[in-house]
Design a protein around this nucleic acid. Structure first.
Length: 206
DNA sequence: GTTTACGCGAAAGTTACATCA
DNA sequence: CGTGATGTAACTTTCGCGTAA
């Protein structure tokens, strides 16, 4: 199969010059015919690079200069690459957006859990306030006076649920405080999950 | 075995032109 | 018809690789 090539007829006959001066002049640039493009595309589908022999053969078949075929393949590879980069970008962006929205909902969930915890602490603290006057009450839970001094103590052991180790509740309170502090740091750390490192770190929780 | 010069082809970027809204 | 945007053929520059001397 041979193609008539208007490009060859009108411009290439006078040897597409390499000199920049001629470039501008009368290089009557013509697009390749649909048939030529169709064949080039079908070849490109199976091989994105042409061996010199194959290039000559294709050029002969299409009625083009081997150089034209080579250039077409170069340009086609470039187009293919930029398209792939665009696709990769879209995929990554979709993944990122998805992750970000999950992160946002987890953040909200965390906030509501913290709120719940605070309310529960307050609820559990109320009976202790009432028991203050009657510490000799039969069968009542042991109330740690150190704990009363630390209303913010949110640890289970300090919520009137006595444990082996809550002898020194102050110490635990300190730890709990640090824990909340850390949570704040954590929140600040992730207020803007835009940096790749943070993004990576976040990934380990998902 | 190494160094050097050379040719070739590819990638990346640019230019010039055709086409279309 | 003129114009800006877009697509693409062709070009230039740069680099890496293979090869012969």
């Amino acid at each position: 199969m041979h193609f008539h090539n208007p490009v060859m007829d009108e411009a290439m006959t006078e040897q597409p010059s390499q000199t920049p001066n001629n470039k501008k002049s009368k290089m009557n640039k013509r697009r390749f015919s649909d048939e030529q493009i169709r064949l080039l595309e079908s070849i490109f589908e199976s091989e994105t690079r042409l061996e010199p022999r194959k290039k000559m053969q294709v050029a002969r078949e299409l009625g083009l200069q081997p150089r034209q075929v080579a250039i077409w393949f170069q340009n086609r590879r470039a187009r293919w690459k930029s398209k792939r980069i665009e696709q990769d970008y879209n995929t990554l962006k979709a993944n990122y957006d998805n992750l970000e929205s999950r992160f946002e909902s987890l953040k909200k969930e965390k906030q509501s859990l913290i709120l719940q915890m605070q309310k529960l602490s307050e609820l559990l603290a109320e009976p202790q306030e009432m028991n203050k006057g009657s510490s000799a009450g039969g069968g009542s839970e042991h109330v740690d006076t150190k704990c009363e001094a630390q209303p913010s103590c949110g640890r289970a052991g300090c919520l009137g649920l006595r444990t082996e180790n809550d002898g020194d509740c102050l110490k635990q309170t300190g730890q709990a405080g640090e824990e909340f502090l850390m949570m704040d740091e954590y929140r600040n750390e992730f207020e803007s999950p835009a940096s790749p490192e943070k993004f990576y770190w976040l990934g380990s929780f998902m």
